[in-house]
């Protein structure tokens, strides 16, 4: 479904991503793991057209290279950005509404879909009219995911959904990711928390210094000694 070949991104002469090739198939959860500065966010930004890049990025047979970000969304790729980045001074409800911006749907079905999100995240329902910026980190992450789901993605990209959250909240978020996977939405999941990511993913890629070091099934990666040492803390 998503095919990336020989992706290169450089920031003013510094190569942040080198020769990255990866593939995500329909219905899969694929994780991209790596430590700080490995180039994970850069790769995602390249896919979404936020950062200019070289190389092939194909989605369902359509070349995304050169397309503007707001049009890439219309192809069905929606990202939950690193650090959640909810719209802080807009209410929870308006944040969700903005998620559906690119879609042409009736008010009635919009309301129905919002109900669906509130069912997935009951905490958001209680806070529908609260300013998003006043919520806790975990709630903001739920909102960021809910907002992305409102766009009805065929590919959902999550950039470090566990960042800065207490373990119990991380568990909650991953429970949700499993449920989203159950709905048949394809997911590309970026994480430093390799243990969590590999627990939900089908396959994984390990990124180091802007290059793919390893790629395998999630099960095999969990067993790999060097992955264990570097990312699983054992």
């Amino acid at each position: 479904m998503l095919r990336i070949e020989q992706l290169h991104v450089s920031y003013g002469g510094i190569q942040a991503v080198r020769n990255v090739s990866l593939e995500v198939s329909e219905g899969e959860v694929v994780t991209l793991i790596g430590s700080n500065g490995a180039g994970k966010t850069t790769t995602l930004n390249a896919i979404c057209g936020i950062t200019p890049s070289r190389g092939m990025i194909q989605y369902r047979g359509v070349e995304l290279q050169g397309k503007a970000t707001h049009n890439i969304v219309r192809e069905g790729i929606v990202m939950v950005p690193e650090g959640r980045r909810v719209f802080p001074k807009l209410t929870v409800a308006v944040n969700l509404l903005m998620g559906a911006y690119a879609r042409k749907i009736s008010k009635a079905s919009l309301r129905k879909e919002m109900e669906g999100i509130y069912q997935l995240f009951p905490r958001l329902a209680e806070r529908a009219n609260q300013m998003a910026g006043t919520m806790s980190g975990g709630e903001q992450q739920m909102l960021a995911i809910g907002r992305a789901l409102m766009a009805k993605p065929s590919l959902l990209i999550l950039d470090e959904p566990s960042m800065g959250l207490a373990p119990i909240v991380v568990k909650d978020i991953y429970e949700t990711i499993r449920r989203i996977k159950g709905q048949g939405i394809t997911i590309l999941l970026v994480e430093q928390n390799a243990l969590m990511a590999l627990s939900v993913a089908d396959r994984g890629y390990v990124l180091e210094n802007g290059e793919i070091r390893l790629h395998d099934t999630a099960r095999n990666l969990r067993e790999q000694d060097n992955v264990k040492k570097a990312y699983l803390g054992s």
Partner: peptide
């Protein structure tokens, strides 16, 4: 309207506004 909400989203976070499909 939709236009107004697009403006406010740009004010709040331009990059995310783009990522929501808004032609900033």
């Amino acid at each position: 309207s939709r236009i107004g909400r697009a403006w406010m989203t740009i004010r709040e976070d331009e990059m995310v506004a783009q990522a929501m499909g808004i032609n900033t």
